[in-house]
């Protein structure tokens, strides 16, 4: 196992001032446990300070550093050089921004733009159910929670939306999942409103069950499973639900 790799990063560049796009090659030596965000920092330090990219927590929790590496959307703060070489069986990597939102510059995309689809599904409780008579808290049974707790791990990194077969006229897997989380949440009573969004023109009728969302999800959420639950009619409205 080599301690150092000779890598070539073919990075998609975009200059918003001139609206010019091009691919720029960077050659660098990197240790096997460096992450891709470390490689971008190394390029900034040693070769090209103008390369724009973004990251925040760098612990796979914020979803800011999502990019496409050799076509695969993933979090670059989690991708070690050694793992990338093993996964793609090459030392040359195409690095592109996610396609789920407009590119601001180079590898940085406008996440606010991407979040509009998540905001559309109202990723919060619209109408809260009454709390337990003995206290202020709302009690959820472990069994109920188990059914959807996996889906609550979504960090909205938009890797799934980038991998999805349907790139237009679709809310995207993560936004649909945010809606499904609240449909499965017993504290939410506005189920019919949520179902209207879910089965609406930009909702699950646009899902093609390619399962690319589950395949690329950095948090290993089986998003396709939750969307398929909606297709099989697992979230039927209850008579008491409000609009």
């Amino acid at each position: 196992m080599p301690q150092e790799y000779d890598l070539t990063l073919k990075i998609s560049r975009y200059d918003p001032d001139t609206r010019r796009s091009w691919i720029q090659d960077y050659h660098l030596k990197a240790g096997r446990i460096l992450r891709f965000v470390d490689l971008f920092r190394k390029i900034n330090d040693e070769q090209d300070p103008t390369l724009a990219w973004r990251s925040s927590c760098e612990h796979g929790q914020c979803g800011t550093c999502g990019m496409k590496i050799n076509g695969k959307p993933l979090l670059t703060c989690e991708l070690l050089v050694e793992r990338a070489v093993g996964l793609f069986k090459t030392h040359t990597f195409n690095v592109e921004p996610l396609t789920a939102a407009r590119v601001i510059r180079d590898l940085a995309v406008d996440l606010e733009n991407a979040y509009e689809r998540v905001h559309f599904v109202k990723p919060y409780i619209i109408a809260r159910a009454a709390t337990h008579p003995d206290g202020d808290e709302y009690r959820i049974s472990p069994r109920t929670l188990d059914a959807y707790v996996e889906a609550t791990r979504c960090i909205n990194c938009f890797c799934c939306a980038t991998a999805c077969v349907t790139q237009r006229n679709y809310l995207g897997p993560n936004a649909v999942l945010a809606n499904i989380v609240r449909l499965m949440d017993p504290r939410e009573t506005a189920k019919e409103k949520r179902l209207d969004i879910l089965y609406g023109e930009q909702g699950i009728p646009r899902c093609r069950t390619a399962r690319a969302c589950s395949f690329v999800c950095p948090k290993e959420i089986d998003i396709a499973h939750f969307i398929a639950l909606a297709k099989e009619g697992a979230f039927r409205p209850e008579p008491s639900s409000t609009r």
């Binding site: 050799n70 076509g71 695969k72 996964l87 077969v165 390619a210 399962r211 395949f215 690329v216």
Partner: peptide
Amino acid sequence: SYYARAKGWGFVMTW
């Protein structure tokens, strides 16, 4: 193989 590695065989099957 590019698409299979990047997005899974389900993606290739869909296309």
